[in-house]
Design a protein around this nucleic acid. Structure first.
Lengths: 340, 340
DNA sequence: GCCGTCGGTCGAATCGATTTGAGGGGTGCC
DNA sequence: GGCACCCCTCAAATCGATTCGACCGACGGC
């Protein structure tokens, strides 16, 4: 009985007599050998079957975001049938620690995915380049040696803004995702706009100006969470010249704004219109249904999966952009008649 | 220049002259060699540095549950410094597919974690046993060859129920987590109690009876989600002899019940008291603060991490049970005076 | 009856790093 | 000046599976 025959028996690849095969399997159970060791196989194949996924800054924050989750879900569903596993890699959560998680430096992986592709000089990207690991960037700045998956953020936001314009709104504020890794919170002065380092935030903001609107206020939030939306909404709607419409860069932020408006005794959409971005199910916002730009989250995950597949098939970097669609709900309506 | 010297240079383990080391490093950059291949190292060490984590049934469902997320977060935080990575393994989502994810059968991992340890005959546990992979079971039935991490579910639920009793409630209903993998939804008849196969559900239910209460109704939900809680609440509170208190097995279920009560025009806690389990932050439930049994979620994740650490240190299976604490909020109050 | 072919099995090389024990060269001490 | 010791380097074995090419026996065709 030779090792090669045993290997044949387990893999079922080469020609092997049924009797021999059975003999091998019997011997295996006798010696309680539980099948080939994945490590040996991986070394030989030169493939680990693992896709490293950098989900976001801290896992906790990322996982509280249904957007990340749904994309991840689509990704895992696509990768599963390909016999690929997903290795979770925390992004750099605290600035004091190392800029790059050690896993990114040393873990075995065939392809890496960065869920929220930040800036060009991202140290994570540098580490992956050095290791020669093909990388897929989601919602990041396009780069020649990296695959990109994204949506039409800019067009979607433009559409939402045009919808508000069509309703007669003129005082439009906007609540944004973080500008950079510093993740500030509050009004952004015009001279701070050069801190805008995060590609997704930049694109969605561009959509607003594309529609010909100069926001009366730009509020940066540190993360896409309901509570930050609430803070933003409270601040913006308590101001003397409050906006009649607020275009938010995410649904969670938008729902926070809606809650803040309700708390202030403002009616939505009679007193203030609110739009979001993502197209999440928000059952607890009832009876309101958010007006929002719907993006195909699971398809986005699947697109990432296909980008990974392409790499493993030996192809070069690819680019995928998915369409979005404006869904009009009950949180946007005609601008209130001016009392002034 | 020999391979062994190069190895020494990179690992820094053995004695090596600084000059030689530098020479090796220079040569490495010249040949753009990016450091040792993890696969070779893993094979040699016999360790992959990977912990497989079965998060729940479908990833999407699991990830919508803040409880899973926080435990996972605690786990990753503990595993990171140990240079261990987390491999996500989907549980068996659809019954038509294979009972066990292929990753569980063949992926390289040093230890496995099953987040919601189901039943004794769990096929996942069987597969891991066959492969000889040490396993940590969270909230599962204790088994001699497996490490367990859990909390005092039973005591916590008992405490919550006693709190309701002390407030004068006598008509107490309970909303539970799934009974088994079938994940039914609706009232559970007494003769269906033998389907109760899920350890965590069983334990929390036992806590209620421990307090000496026989629930006027037991409602099973298919998952710990707000919408299922809402459905349960709507059904239970529309019934003719509606309960005056509802003890829920999770906070998300409890918030759904609170929302349902509000929709039905019932005041919480004047008309109906609601208690939860988990101790989540639920800012959008404002102004209410849920009365609940607080469990240390991140510590639970850390405890899982330590269980993993123990295994890797060569120790045998261990058991960890964490304490819980009743936190009284605004959703429970004195039983309404009977009108009847 | 002989040769060609095919199905099945085996040996050996290979993937890449680690690690032990041996050996070589230099230095310090007597 | 010689010997002993120390520091460094290196050759070789090992982890476990895969796979190519070789080999062997049997069968079929001519």
């Amino acid at each position: 009985m030779s090792v090669s025959t045993a290997s044949l028996a387990f893999s079922g690849a080469g020609p092997i007599a049924a009797a021999t095969r059975q003999r091998v399997l019997d011997a295996a159970t006798a010696l309680d050998y539980s099948g080939p060791n994945p490590l040996g196989r991986q070394l030989r194949r030169g493939r680990s079957g693992i896709v490293g996924v950098v989900v976001g800054d801290s896992l906790r924050r990322s996982f509280r975001d249904p957007v990340s989750i749904q994309v991840l879900d689509g990704l895992v569903s696509t990768l599963g049938p390909l016999d690929l596993g997903v290795l979770l890699i925390p992004g750099s959560s605290d600035p004091s620690g190392p800029a790059v998680d050690p896993l990114l430096e040393s873990a075995a992986m065939d392809v890496a995915v960065i869920m929220w592709g930040g800036t060009t000089d991202d140290p994570m990207l540098g580490a992956l380049r050095r290791r020669g690991i093909p990388t897929v960037l989601v919602e990041g700045q396009h780069q020649s040696d990296v695959s990109s998956v994204g949506i039409d953020d800019r067009g979607g936001m433009r559409e939402a803004t045009e919808h508000l314009l069509a309703l007669g709104h003129t005082r439009i504020a906007t609540v944004t995702l973080p500008f950079d890794r510093a993740r500030g919170e509050g009004l952004v002065a015009p001279d701070q706009m050069d801190h805008l380092n995060w590609e997704i935030t930049r694109r969605r903001l561009s959509g607003v100006t594309d529609a010909g609107v100069t926001p009366v206020a730009i509020w940066e939030t540190p993360a896409s969470l309901v509570e930050h939306g609430r803070t933003a909404g409270t601040a913006l709607l308590s101001a003397p010249d409050r906006p009649t419409a607020i275009a938010c860069q995410s649904d969670l932020l938008a729902s926070g704004v809606v809650l803040a408006a309700r708390e202030l005794g403002l009616r939505v959409p009679e007193d203030v219109s609110v739009s979001g971005f993502d197209g999440l199910d928000l059952p607890w916002l009832q009876p309101d249904v958010l007006t929002t730009v719907v993006q195909p989250l699971e398809e986005k995950g699947a697109a990432v999966g296909h980008a990974v597949e392409d790499f493993l098939a030996g192809e070069g970097p690819s680019t995928r952009e998915l369409p979005v669609e404006l869904r009009i709900g009950t949180t946007t309506g005609p601008a209130p008649v001016s009392l002034g």
